[in-house]
């Protein structure tokens, strides 16, 4: 069963025809060319497909494309309308990534956290990011970047050249 959906994707109204069984993640990647949400597990466990739906992070592999009719989907592409965000810059300065595959999802989850709770403590940061798996970094550089951004870091934020 094909249906047309219309929704806001990174502040732009998009209309597209989808099948009832189409998953938001696949539609974004394969039909709309939005590649930053990644396929990691396809079962909602790894967080690499994270996107924001009406401002809240969701696992886009667990959302039917039909469900987002009339809603607003934001991906990393949308976050960067005016270039890299301060959070991304801090991630860069702290080497808060290695292979970079989990990075888009991690950035979105961290962004949601500081939008909601501008001064999280370490435990709150850990909890907020615990749905995004990273196999490379051991998470510490990610947590430290968030702490630095909100002014709770150890002052190790470095100028890199």
């Amino acid at each position: 069963m094909k249906k047309k959906i219309t929704f806001l994707l990174n502040s732009e109204t998009r209309s597209i025809e989808v099948e009832s069984g189409d998953i938001l993640l696949d539609v974004l990647r394969d039909k709309l060319g939005i590649k930053t949400p990644k396929i990691g597990c396809d079962m909602g466990d790894c967080g690499s497909c994270t996107v924001m739906l009406d401002g809240k992070t969701v696992k886009s592999c667990l959302v039917l494309a039909l469900e987002v009719e009339g809603q607003e989907v934001t991906t990393l592409e949308g976050l960067m309308k005016d270039g890299m965000t301060p959070l991304q810059q801090t991630f860069h300065d702290f080497n808060s990534f290695q292979c970079g595959f989990c990075t888009p999802g991690m950035v979105l989850s961290a962004t949601e956290l500081i939008n909601k709770n501008p001064k999280p403590n370490r435990k709150e940061i850990q909890e907020a990011l615990s749905g995004n798996l990273c196999r490379c970094t051991g998470y510490i550089p990610i947590i430290e970047a968030v702490e630095d951004l909100i002014g709770k870091g150890k002052g190790e934020g470095k100028e890199k050249g």
């Binding site: 069963m1 249906k3 099948e19 009832s20 069984g21 189409d22 998953i23 696949d26 039917l64």
Partner: peptide, 11 residues
Amino acid sequence: MSILQDFDYFK
């Protein structure tokens, strides 16, 4: 991965 089973969707 899309869903293999066909179904109708209502909201």
